[in-house]
Simulated assay, not measured.
Amino acid sequence: MTIKIPTIAELKEKLSLPKPWDIVVIFLLNILIAIPTFLIAHQNLIDLEWIIHLDRIIIFIIILVIIQLLLRLVKTIIILIVFLYLIALLYGTLFGNYGFNRVFEDYRYMVYSMSETPNPQDIIVAKLLPFPNKSKIINAVDFANPKVRNFALSATTKHFKEFRQTGDRRRMIQCFAVFKEIRNRWNYVNDPKGREYIAYASESLQHFSGDCDDHAVLMAACIKAVGGTPRIIHTGGHLYPEMLIGNKNDLETAIYLIKEELFKQESHNQQIHYHIDERGQIWLNLDYTATYPGGKFMSEEILGELTFN
């Protein structure tokens, strides 16, 4: 029995679609490819902050046109391209970090953040001034103390446990859970008159009381205890904690989670406040005066910062 090997022309004919379905499939495939491509471009290109995000609209249109032209060039094997694209997303969904769900979530976070008005502050130059009581504060942030670790763990089981995420997003949500638990329980109490008293984080867990530096120490220790990166900001007469969010893409995720999932009531019609450091990293305000992560700054004067990597 003779096996007939199809020619290239015959293969192209079998893999091509009849008109007008080829046009429809090319358009749908264009949209499917353009969205993740645009997300990558959006995350890595400088935001020109044009009115109604016109720069992003132009970028998306350019990507659509380029992909449309490329797909028309290879339309004779369009079925194979569709199959390979779906296989790639399916593999990412099952075994990797980027699949159908991640594309949908990234797009949703991006669109939502573009409709919001966050409130970034000026870039902070590290080590502006010597940090007051630096060694005492570093020692007080005893994140490895079992009491601190266990409290932080209990906060993550008490709040937002139903939100199933992985990796950096799970860590972000767990840090927000720590913020919520401390914020709900904190009672502001002044230091003894004429004395600067800095309580260890494990000590503050007994009564959840103290002044701004005690709160900053406790928050920083608990954030650190669940894998986050905190820092404490010095403004002269006030100390407050911040947590590292990451890059612009991570900020979009944080904004959506805060305003639409985790702190919807507290952040209603409110802005998200954060700082951008000299390396372009974004830090979210966690002061005790804020009712949600990224609440309004109590003091905007920056004299120094102390990071706990």
Score class of each variant (00 low, 15 high):
A41Y: 08
T253Y: 06
G210S: 03
R231L: 13
V24R: 00
I81T: 11
M114Q: 08
P241G: 05
N247L: 13
V217E: 12
I59K: 09
E162D: 12
C175G: 15
W21N: 05
N269C: 11
I79R: 12
L17W: 04
P36Q: 00
F95D: 00
F163A: 03
Y197Q: 02
L84F: 15
H215L: 04
D250T: 04
Y91T: 14
V111I: 12
K180M: 11
E300R: 07
F160Q: 01
Q68Y: 14
P36W: 02
Q68G: 15
K264Y: 13
Y91A: 14
Q174E: 15
D191F: 06
I182Y: 06
Q265S: 11
Y85N: 01
I87H: 10
S202P: 00
F60H: 10
G194F: 08
P241L: 07
P118I: 02
L251Y: 04
K161C: 12
I31P: 01
S267F: 04
F263K: 02
G280A: 00
L71E: 07
L73F: 08
Y109N: 04
F83T: 01
M298R: 03
E10V: 07
I245T: 06
N101K: 00
F208Q: 00
D168F: 14
L262E: 03
G295L: 00
I232P: 01
A254N: 07
W50M: 11
V141Q: 07
K75M: 06
K180P: 02
F263I: 04
G236E: 10
R164D: 15
I58D: 05
S209N: 11
I87G: 01
S204D: 08
Q174S: 15
R164Y: 11
L29P: 01
G294S: 02
I57Y: 05
D287V: 03
T37E: 07
R108N: 05
F308Q: 10
I79D: 08
D191H: 07
F308G: 10
Y98I: 03
